[in-house]
Computed example of a mutant assay.
Amino acid sequence: MDDARGESGSDEAIGGQAKEDGQISTVTGLTVEDFHLLVNLGVFNATHMNQAVFAFRRYEDSSLSYTGIESHKGLRHYGLYDTVVAIDDETTA
């Protein structure tokens, strides 16, 4: 994940020029082109991927908050796998 947390991960990873080509390759062993092909073939369940990314981000944010770090002050949207969702105060509580 990068700091542009309003972008969906799918757009970030496969949208023409990936910001983190090296990270994708290091983490998955896939090139961006291979990842794009797998996405187009429907290998990834978008609903499950969105849930996993959302859960990770909530865990990450609460862990950082616990240590006194607010990494993205005023963040109002989470970029997930293939969508962006607005958050509210109840979501982050």
Rank of each mutant, 00 (worst) to 15 (best):
S8F: 01
G6W: 07
D3F: 10
K73N: 13
G29I: 13
M49Q: 03
T31V: 12
S65Q: 12
M49T: 04
T92K: 13
K73G: 06
M1N: 03
R5H: 13
A93F: 14
T67L: 12
T26A: 10
A18G: 04
E7C: 04
A13T: 02
R58F: 02
A18H: 02
E70C: 05
D3N: 10
D88Q: 14
N45C: 01
D11E: 05
Y78V: 00
S62H: 15
F44L: 14
A86H: 10
K19F: 12
A55V: 02
V39P: 00
D89P: 08
I69P: 01
V85Q: 12
D82A: 05
R58I: 07
Q51V: 04
I24Q: 02
K19M: 11
V32W: 02
A52H: 01
N40C: 00
S65N: 07
I69Q: 03
V27Q: 05
V32R: 08
S62G: 06
A13G: 03
G74V: 03
R58K: 13
M49W: 02
L75K: 07
N45R: 04
V27A: 12
S63C: 08
S63G: 06
V39R: 01
D89N: 11
T83S: 11
A13Y: 00
V85A: 14
S25T: 12
S8I: 02
F56Y: 05
N40E: 14
Y78G: 01
H36A: 15
R76E: 07
